[in-house]
Amino acid sequence: MKRIKKSWPINDQANLLNRLGDMTENGYNLLDGLRLMELQMNKRQRTEMSAAVNRLREGEPFYQVLQALAFHKEAVSICYLAEMHGELSVAMRQSGGLLERKLTQVNQLKKVIRYPIFLIFTVFVMFYILQAVIIPQFSGVYQSMNMETSRTTAVIFAFFQHVHYAVIGFVLLALGAALYYWFGFKKKSPADKMLFFVRIPILGRLVILFNSYFFSLQLSSLLKSGLSIYDSLKAFKEQSFLPFYRQEAEQIINKLRAGESIDRALYKHPCYENDFCEVVLHGQLSGQLHRELFTYSQFLMDRLERKVEKWTGILQPVIYGIVAGMILIVYLSMLLPMYQMMNQL
């Protein structure tokens, strides 16, 4: 099946996976469920889903159909692993729930920054008018009347006379970042890329929580199906959707072959929570590793959602503070030269 160029909206992906998971759990097979879902779709999605149904009828795995439909990589990988442990309906609901959480977090962030971004854009327009029109006129009046500018006014004039250098510097910085991404970052290994994100303040903490959540949840599902730790890691190694987890599984397998335990392989790993290895050790000692990992994954998701809510709540006042500072500069830029001019007349 040829991969489509435009992916479905995240909301539609989550809706399909959640409903299809519920339907298959209630006795529908995949083909019947997809045919019924097809009736609720728009024209483009219906055409693509019709091709997907035909591929399923020919025996193509469900995860490959999702991959061809350009579904989210994490959702595809969950369904891929599920086809190994036989709980596809549960995996589809997990995938749908994961996508719904991502969509909720993105919508929260958009809601927080939408109005501040409009204010920042408006202030930048005012900055441009000041720099291009108003400040040069003030400066011309001072020169023509041989009036002496105060230190504050001189600083304001100098700021707007050189503000274009800051704009040029920002453009060069963005260009440098783009060049680094295309010629440097893209060539790094998946582990190095993940380490880069982990080291970013605030974002790194969220990345670590999500890595620990995703790995523990999927490993729990594989172990619950009766696979050994080695076979479960091998399943991660054989998937091609998430290169980081594939490389991680390969490295852990090599350590297991060298005689290390899995908890030692995860000890002080920079991309996972520090207590991840302790949970694995406790689960091995109790003989209920799959149960311990599943419970731990739910704790991690709660922790991740609280962190996102916390930093989203902090972000909005910070943005408003920046906007307020920019507006203050605009007002001072217009009022101080006028007051000084009036005092010297």
Rank of each mutant, 00 (worst) to 15 (best):
Q137K: 12
M126T: 01
F299W: 14
S232V: 09
G325E: 00
E83K: 02
Q344G: 04
L172N: 05
S240T: 06
L195P: 00
V106M: 11
A51D: 08
R257Y: 06
N42E: 10
N107D: 12
D32G: 08
M126G: 04
L293T: 02
Y296G: 09
K187M: 13
F157P: 00
M342P: 00
M341K: 04
L103V: 11
E25T: 11
L209E: 08
L227N: 06
L56Y: 01
T24E: 14
L36V: 13
L130Y: 01
S189R: 12
Q161G: 06
L195Y: 03
E250T: 12
F196N: 06
R291N: 10
K255G: 03
L30N: 03
S7D: 08
E309Y: 05
N11L: 12
A82N: 02
D32K: 14
E60A: 06
M326S: 05
S139L: 06
Q247F: 11
Y339R: 01
L315N: 02
M194A: 01
Q105S: 14
L266N: 07
S7P: 07
H282C: 07
T104M: 14
D263T: 10
L217G: 00
I4L: 10
I208K: 15
Q284P: 00
E74C: 06
Y213T: 10
I134Q: 01
E309L: 11
N18R: 05
L195A: 06
L30K: 09
D22L: 15
R306M: 08
G96A: 04
C79E: 00
P136Y: 02
K110S: 11
H282W: 06
G97H: 04
G96M: 02
D263G: 04
A174L: 15
M147P: 02
N18K: 04
A70Y: 05
L109Q: 04
D192S: 13
D275R: 14
Q13M: 11
V308Q: 03
A191P: 00
Y115N: 09
F127S: 01
V90S: 11
S77D: 04
G325A: 04
V65S: 02
P270F: 15
I10Y: 09
N26K: 12
S286W: 01
Q64A: 09
F210Q: 14
A174W: 10
F170L: 15
Q94W: 09
R205D: 10
L99D: 02
Q344T: 10
F127A: 02
Q251N: 15
D192E: 14
Q316P: 07
E58Y: 03
L172S: 13
F185S: 09
L88Y: 03
Q143A: 13
E25R: 14
E260L: 14
I252V: 15
Y142F: 15
L98Q: 07
R44Y: 08
E278A: 15
A265N: 10
